[in-house]
Write a protein that binds this DNA or RNA. Structure first.
Lengths: 342, 342
DNA sequence: TGCAAAATTGTAAGCGCTTACAGTTGGTTT
DNA sequence: AAACCAACTGTAAGCGCTTACAATTTTGCA
């Protein structure tokens, strides 16, 4: 099978009997092309199996045909789900997805967002998944000319969809409070190295607010970084167990950390809800089985929704009205790891 | 902050006092450039903060600066891990990763591999993760000019790393056999729709071989598709439980399906190992906690290893010797869901 | 029916980089 | 010292597509 010369727009022009320029316009569905020409071009392109060269298009000022999906990390359940959901939407609209994992490293984040021009050169848009950007990065991104949409970022000048993380955390914490607990610990989504996923900040805030509303204070030793992995949750819970003051209830900022906490408890001969009440946040597929009480959030929906929003922007950049902000609901799910304080 | 005209290779040429051509060569570290010129160019590029345009490079016949990571789906634990590990390797080498999830749909697979030219246009290489390709797709890919490396594909004309899935499954099954079980069921990695991930085929083969070696036959009703999700495992196990002939042991082709099986058992008032012995394959982080016996495989290692192989190929396309094949080891881990048949 | 305005279509100039091929330069060889 | 070479460097022709701007065809109306 010899490698044939690629079919270019010129071939289509020739076959359709129109000029390259008209073909180019027809191919991109620009308005000022007659229906007849449009049809001829479509027909010729079809016959020739013509595929545009994204590189050439890009170079000439067109679209790259790609968007970037940026996530703090790609291994946790939440991100894997959101990424897949978004990828599906993008793929169906013909966009390539460049995956960029920040790997929980501020250095990687700085590298990516510190050189937006480089990014803008390879993609037309960016989908941010719970990425924690500082004010400068936000305004740079806004000014970069890239279309942007995000999952889980409030107060941001572009389309955004998410849950109210603070409220979700508040709901979980409040559940604990209502069960009569007042010595609470929290396994935050922050990483050990200090990095934090955006949602984890809000969740911590929600936790704190719930306590404050009950005039409770949080002992610093009982706020421990777990990240969003099972292993992190396990380490964090182990740390809490080593504490002289055992809390009677624990809020894990994500279910995976909650699973880890369950492990740590078992390793120490304890369990939930007997020794401590434990509640997570996410509603991971395993949670039902583990009996983990939690606050459920629609994960794939968020990814898909945001991806759709971005596709729309990309399709019609002129629609430059103010950013849309969509909040999806969460729901408390009581299972077996929480119960009334005795 | 006005959007300045981009710095091109011409600017670098001007500043360095050399021709565009020499600059281009110096930038790409081609051999025939004097050290002096090389230094001047590096210096000028540095000063100007020059960033090459990948689109232009591509159009002119250079590299796209991107590779594609293709996975049957992106949500399962295995793929999320492998993808992240690979992404890290690629990102560190400066490659963009285009994520392509086949979403377990043959149609998507056909679309992607049926038009390799389109793919070749946007990426220089492809990393395949347990993708099940037919002979034609393999040879087309081989002929496409794309650099290829894969995880978990045997007998393929390019670099490959993986575990011996058949042997791993054989090991798991044999463990069951050694415990005295002879009525075995298997939850295969095949999807309900008939799609199969490459590894799941080999695992099924390994299961069958183990039985055959003990002169045992498999009842068709006891070979059920579970895919590689918790939910799939749950459905599959439920189906088995509805069977009149309950097996005394079950091999789940992946731990996640095993978790689902555990759920189904519980929903039916049964449990492992009392009612059936259950063994998985993967060693998912939850498996320890669940007490799930399994066969452990190094997941991130496989992704990173294969990514490195691909990077090497990409860096030196001339090294066209025969494909390397690396087999990583697996290990039986006995936990609590398997025990001797009573 | 005739002419300006509107709608289409075509011409041609790049976009920034790679690369075949044509110089240059300076050291060797005879 | 003339003739050669090897090692560099420069010239210029694209890669395939977008897009001002010009040219042409239609259409709308008086």
């Amino acid at each position: 099978m010899a490698r044939a010369r690629r079919t270019t727009i010129a071939d289509v022009a020739l076959l359709s009997g129109l000029s390259i320029c008209t073909v180019s316009r027809a191919l991109r569905n620009l308005s000022n092309v007659s229906d007849k020409a449009q049809a001829q071009v479509a027909d010729a392109a079809q016959k020739l199996g013509y595929k545009a060269s994204s590189a050439a298009a890009r170079l000439a000022g067109g679209s790259t045909g790609a968007i970037a999906i940026v996530a703090p990390s790609a291994t946790s359940w939440f991100f894997a789900q959101a990424v897949e959901a978004a990828e599906e939407v993008f793929a169906d609209s013909g966009w390539d997805c460049v995956l960029i994992s920040l790997r929980n490293k501020p250095s990687v984040r700085k590298k990516v967002f510190g050189d937006l021009d480089a990014l803008a050169q390879r993609v037309d848009g960016v989908l941010l998944l719970n990425v924690d950007l500082d004010a400068e990065e936000i305004s740079d991104l806004e000014a970069s000319g890239l279309a942007v949409a995000s999952v889980g970022m409030s107060r941001v000048p572009w389309d955004n969809v998410g849950i109210d993380d603070e409220h979700a955390a508040w709901t979980a914490t409040n559940h604990l409070l209502e069960l009569g607990h007042w010595e609470l610990a929290v396994l935050t989504g922050h990483e050990m190295d200090g990095t934090s996923v955006l949602s984890s900040r809000d969740r911590l805030t929600g936790f704190r607010r719930a306590l404050a509303e009950s005039d409770l204070t949080v002992h610093p030793d009982l706020v421990v970084a777990a990240g969003s992995t099972i292993e992190g949750g396990r380490r964090a819970m182990t740390e809490i167990l080593a504490n002289r003051d055992m809390p009677t209830a624990v809020f894990a900022a994500c279910d995976e950390a909650g699973f880890g906490a369950l492990m740590a408890l078992r390793e120490h001969g304890r369990n939930a809800p007997k020794d401590v009440s434990l509640i997570g946040l996410d509603d991971h597929p395993m949670s039902w089985f583990m009996g983990l009480s939690t606050v459920a959030q629609p994960v794939a929906d968020q990814g898909a929704f945001a991806a759709n929003l971005l596709c729309e922007r990309l399709a019609d950049p002129s629609a430059h009205d103010r950013a849309a902000r969509h909040m999806l609901g969460v729901k408390l799910i009581e299972r077996k790891t929480t119960r009334h304080k005795r």
